[in-house]
């Protein structure tokens, strides 16, 4: 091990900005009557999302005893929705979350997620609040707000809901060689989004009405053109994805189906299958208020604030020194 590796990957000056931002976030929510919560990191169940790999942790009753698998949360979403079902009212959390295999300029396997839920808010109202919070941190900016369809039309000239896989491929090929095949249209949409559009979204841009196939845990709605879309939004800024929000799905049967569908997809893609969070289904059965929720990458927001090019510059000890 290199003798200099005791040193932090972030400048102390940056960590002062980090501390200031934590205080600003807490003040923002205190003023708005949103309660801070800190739910568990370790859970019996893992996230169902096929493309998020949870870190598995071994628990034993005593050293050398029987081993039980637990999972580190990839987001506090399930736990916070269980609190909403228990009538918590509006809540937020600054959570440490964990994602296996995600290391890069914009990724650290452990990072800080700012997640909050607003009963009786629509997705549009929550977007207003995201804009208000980000403006507290970054100051006044020029903001854009447009649908996923309009975003694609503006940057690549196609309607993402109508485009075929072949069309999407032909958008990518002049810029990036891809030798793999994939018959999931979402893979190609994600490629266009992450390779061709996202790097150009420097000013804060809120994108809403995602394809229904990328709903996550958002409700499905019909857009003005009669196309079924997900009531999901994302915030992009500084050429990266910053936040993901939903008009939250509340139908327990639909929730159970989506967990099952994710599990099936994991099976078909040869990905590890993990215990599903069925307690979320039970919580929805008991009833949660109509609400919107959003998760924002705290570290990435700080990157924009201080002008960092890599996430490790804003985390005291990045992955290679943790």
């Amino acid at each position: 091990m290199n003798r200099n590796h005791w040193q932090p990957t972030a400048e102390i000056l940056t960590l002062r900005e980090r501390a200031k931002m934590l205080a600003e976030v807490r003040a923002f929510f205190a003023e708005r009557g949103v309660m801070e919560v800190d739910t568990h990191c370790l859970s019996h169940a893992a996230v169902s999302d096929p493309f998020i790999d949870s870190l598995e942790v071994i628990y034993s009753d005593h050293p050398g005893g029987d081993k039980h698998s637990y999972y580190l949360q990839s987001s506090p979403e399930y736990a916070m929705k269980r609190l909403l079902a228990a009538d918590s009212g509006p809540i937020y959390q600054l959570a440490k979350v964990f994602r296996n295999g995600e290391v890069g300029r914009l990724h650290n396997p452990e990072f800080t997620m700012l997640e909050w839920y607003r009963p009786r808010f629509s997705a549009q109202q929550l977007m207003d609040e995201v804009q208000a919070l980000v403006s507290v941190v970054l100051g006044a900016q020029h903001w854009e707000r447009l649908s996923y369809r309009d975003l694609f039309k503006r940057f690549v000239g196609v309607d993402p809901h109508q485009a075929t896989i072949e069309q999407l491929k032909s958008l990518i090929e002049p810029h990036f060689e891809c030798s793999f095949t994939d018959d999931r249209k979402d893979t190609w949409l994600e490629l266009v989004m992450s390779h061709l559009i996202e790097p150009k979204l420097i000013e804060p841009t809120l994108v809403f009405d995602f394809p229904a196939s990328q709903a996550g845990l958002a409700e499905l709605v019909e857009d003005a053109q009669g196309v079924q879309v997900a009531a999901r939004f994302e915030l992009y800024a500084g050429g990266m994805e910053l936040a993901n929000g939903y008009q939250e799905l509340r139908d327990p049967a639909e929730q159970a189906e989506r967990l099952e569908a994710d599990d099936q997809m994991r099976d078909s893609l040869g990905l590890p299958r993990r215990p599903l969070e069925t307690r979320l289904v039970s919580a929805l059965e008991s009833g949660i208020p109509a609400c919107a929720g959003v998760a924002l990458g705290f570290d990435r927001l700080l990157m924009i604030k201080v002008g960092a090019s890599s996430i490790k510059e804003v985390i005291p000890f990045g992955f290679e020194r943790c």
């Binding site: 493309f51 990036f176 893979t187 993901n244």
Partner: peptide, 27 residues
């Protein structure tokens, strides 16, 4: 490393062919 929060992970690589010197990007 490129990974949308909810989507597939990709690795975007800038390559240089050592025989021809050609530089291009592949995902």
């Amino acid at each position: 490393f490129v990974k949308p929060g909810k989507g597939q992970a990709f690795t975007r690589v800038r390559l240089r062919n050592l025989m021809t010197g050609r530089i291009w990007e592949r995902t």
